[in-house]
C-alpha cells in the first residue's frame, strides 16, 4: 500500500533525523574537546603550574597564581553559599506552609537565571565600591551569589527524598523539629548535598564574567582576600584576546587545566550520585 509505505518512510526519515541531531550536538563537543586537549597538551609543562605570568615578549611563565586564585575564590564562595543555601533549602522543606517558602523557591530560580555579568555589576556596587577596592573577597561573594540558588534547590530536593519515616521516628522519640532535621534528616541527605555542592563549585569555577570587576586579576602570587587575585578564567580571557602566539598557547593550556578541574569535579560528583542511587536501591 503506497500510503502505508509513505507513512513508514516518513517515520524512518524522522527517526534518522533525531539520530542526526544527536550527532549535530556531538560534533562540536568532539571538536572542542579535541582542540583543547591537543593544543593544551602541547603547551602545558611543569612551569605552567609553578610560575607566574611573564611580561609581554618574555616567553615562558605560567598560571600557578591563577590556579591558586581560582581555588581560593571557590573556597570563599563555598564558605558563603553553603550555609545560606543549605539552611534556606531546609526552610523550604520544613516550613512549606509559610508564604516565604514559595518566595524562596522563586527567588532561587530567578537567581539561578540571572546572567553572571549582572551578578558582577551587583557585587561591584555592594562589595567593591564601598570597601574601596577590588578584592578576592568580592570575587568570592560574586561566585557565592551564583552558588546559593544551586545549593538551595539541591538541598530542597534531597531533603524531600529522605523517607518520612526517619523524621517521624525521631519526632516520635521526642526530638524537636530542629533536632530531628539536624541530627537525622540532614545526615541522611548529606552525601547528596555534598555532591550538589561539588557540582555547584564546578559550575562557578568556570565563571569569568562575575570576576571581571570584582576579583580583577593579579599577576603575582596572592592569598590575601583583601587584594585583587588572579583566576584561571580571567587569565585565559586576557591571553585569548591577546595577539601573542606564546600567550595563545598559554591560553589553551589554561583552558585544559580549567576543563580538567571543572569536568573532574562534576564527574566525581556524578560518580558519587550513582553510588548513592545504588545504595538507596
Amino acid at each position: 500500500m503506497p500510503r502505508d509505505l509513505r507513512r513508514r518512510l516518513v517515520s524512518t526519515v524522522m527517526t534518522s533525523l533525531s539520530a542526526l541531531s544527536v550527532l549535530v550536538a556531538l560534533v562540536p563537543l568532539g571538536l572542542l574537546l579535541f582542540f583543547v586537549a591537543v593544543q593544551g597538551a602541547a603547551a602545558i609543562s611543569l612551569d605552567f603550574f609553578t610560575q607566574t605570568p611573564r611580561p609581554v615578549g618574555e616567553p615562558g611563565g605560567g598560571m600557578g597564581n591563577a590556579i591558586v586564585g581560582t581555588l581560593i575564590l571557590c573556597g570563599t564562595a563555598a564558605l558563603i553559599a553553603v550555609p545560606i543555601g543549605v539552611l534556606s533549602g531546609m526552610f523550604v522543606v520544613e516550613f512549606p506552609q509559610s508564604p516565604l517558602a514559595p518566595a524562596v523557591r522563586f527567588a532561587a530560580d530567578t537567581l539561578n537565571g540571572v546572567p553572571s555579568i549582572v551578578v558582577g555589576i551587583f557585587v561591584y556596587a555592594i562589595a567593591v565600591e564601598p570597601t574601596g577596592g577590588f578584592s578576592a573577597m568580592a570575587g568570592g561573594i560574586a561566585l557565592g551569589v551564583m552558588m546559593i540558588p544551586l545549593i538551595t534547590r539541591t538541598t530542597e530536593e534531597l531533603l524531600r527524598l529522605v523517607p518520612a519515616s526517619l523524621r517521624e521516628g525521631a519526632l516520635a522519640l521526642g526530638a524537636t523539629r530542629g533536632r530531628a532535621v539536624l541530627t537525622v534528616v540532614l545526615p541522611a541527605a548529606l552525601p547528596g548535598i555534598v555532591t550538589g555542592v561539588m557540582l555547584a563549585l564546578a559550575r562557578v569555577a568556570g565563571e569569568t564574567a562575575p570576576l571581571l570587576f570584582t576579583a580583577f586579576g593579579n599577576r603575582f602570587w596572592s592569598t590575601d582576600l583583601t587584594e585583587p587575585i588572579g583566576a584561571l578564567t580571567l587569565q585565559v580571557y586576557a591571553y585569548a584576546i591577546s595577539p601573542y602566539d606564546d600567550w595563545h598557547r598559554q591560553a589553551w593550556a589554561g583552558a585544559l587545566v580549567l576543563l580538567a578541574l571543572v569536568l573532574g569535579c562534576s564527574l566525581a560528583a556524578r560518580a558519587a550520585t550513582r553510588r548513592l542511587e545504588r545504595m538507596h536501591r
Partner: peptide, 9 residues
C-alpha cells in the same frame, strides 16, 4: 560576610 572576610584574612 565582611566579618567573615576579615576573619579569613
Amino acid at each position: 560576610t565582611m566579618a567573615l572576610g576579615v576573619l579569613t584574612v
